[in-house]
Simulated assay, not measured.
Amino acid sequence: MRIRNCMTIFATSLLFLGCTPSVDPHINMEPPVYVEQLPSKDSGSGQSNAGSLYGRGKDPLFSDRKAMNVNDIVTIVISETASQTSTGSKQTSKNSTTSLGAGTFTAGGSPLSNVARQLNKYGNIGFSAGGENSFNGSGTTSRNERFNATISARIIKILNNGNYFIEGNRELLINGEKQIMQVSGVIRPYDISQTNEIDSRYIADAKILYKTEGDVDRSTKKPWGTRIMEAIWPF
């Protein structure tokens, strides 16, 4: 009866675990808190100095082609390289010995000392205890990653200090495989090149997401049953 109850509880646990959706890695694409807290910059009249060749009106003769207004497009060149190597080592040891001879009980005329003297006639009786343990562990990890891509982003908000909050999305469907790329962050207008491009290293609070969806992605993932057994298996 007890075995049957244990099997019932185990089967019920597996049922509930199987119904629980797996949690995949994700990136929160929401803007940082300070982007929402800072007020937007006033757009002004559009042309601060009437008659100037360098004005910011509609298509001025010598205008700057860099992104400068909300909904303007800026090209982001993503070139991220990560290299990490770490080594750790730890070694400990402990050795202790305790010895208590039977002669301790032979002093005096107590009944216990008489028994000890009689036993000592046939052998050397004593009490001893000791312990020894040691640990030696070491580990080394090494990882190199590189990601290169280009994506266009849109200026979502111009902050009060003149910086831009940008956000870009790109979805590509090739032979049933969907590639998704998302990027967001805060940039300075001074870091935008004359070709309206900016390197990803100049993006503050950068969030870059790249993932694929399709048959190849599903075939490279572990089945939910395997993930459950790995999560609850104690050995």
Rank of each mutant, 00 (worst) to 15 (best):
Ser219Ile: 10
Gln179Arg: 12
Ile228Asn: 07
Ile203His: 08
Ile73Glu: 06
Glu145Met: 03
Arg65Phe: 03
Glu145Cys: 00
Asn124Gly: 03
Lys41Phe: 03
Gly131Asp: 01
Lys66Leu: 03
Pro189Asn: 05
Asp217Trp: 09
Thr85Asp: 08
Gly126Tyr: 14
Asn136Arg: 12
Lys157Met: 01
Ser138His: 10
Asn95Cys: 01
Glu36Leu: 14
Ala231Asp: 10
Asn136Thr: 12
Pro32Val: 04
Gln47Asp: 14
Glu177Thr: 13
Asn95Pro: 00
Ser128Thr: 12
Asn95Tyr: 04
Lys121Gly: 06
Asn5Trp: 11
Ile27Asn: 01
Asp72Gly: 02
Phe105Arg: 03
Glu145Leu: 07
Gly131Glu: 02
Thr226Trp: 06
Arg146Cys: 05
Phe16Cys: 09
Glu230Gln: 13
Val77Phe: 11
Cys6Tyr: 14
Gln47His: 05
Leu173Lys: 10
Asn71Trp: 02
Ala102Asn: 10
Gly168Lys: 00
Ala50Pro: 13
Asn144Cys: 03
Ala82Glu: 11
Asn163Ser: 10
Asn71Thr: 07
Gly168Glu: 02
Asn161His: 05
Ile228Asp: 13
Met181Leu: 12
Ala206Asp: 01
Asp191Gln: 08
Tyr164Ile: 07
Asn5Phe: 14
Leu173Ile: 09
Thr212Val: 09
Ser134Asp: 13
Ile76Thr: 00
Ile228Glu: 12
Thr195Ala: 14
Gly137Gln: 15
Ile174Ala: 00
Ile151Gly: 05
Leu53Gln: 07
Asn160His: 12
Ile166Gly: 01
Phe135Ser: 15
Ile151Lys: 04
Phe105His: 00
Gly225Gln: 13
Lys211Tyr: 15
Glu197Val: 02
Ser96Tyr: 14
Lys58Gly: 05
Asn161Arg: 07
Thr150Ala: 11
Ala204Asp: 15
Asp42Arg: 05
Asn136Ser: 15
Asn49Ile: 13
Lys58Ser: 12
Asn5Leu: 14
Ser113Ile: 00
Ser43His: 08
Thr20Cys: 11
Asp217Ala: 15
Pro111Thr: 06
Gln91Leu: 11
Ile187Val: 05
Asn148His: 11
Gly123Ser: 10
Ala231Pro: 04
Gly168Tyr: 01
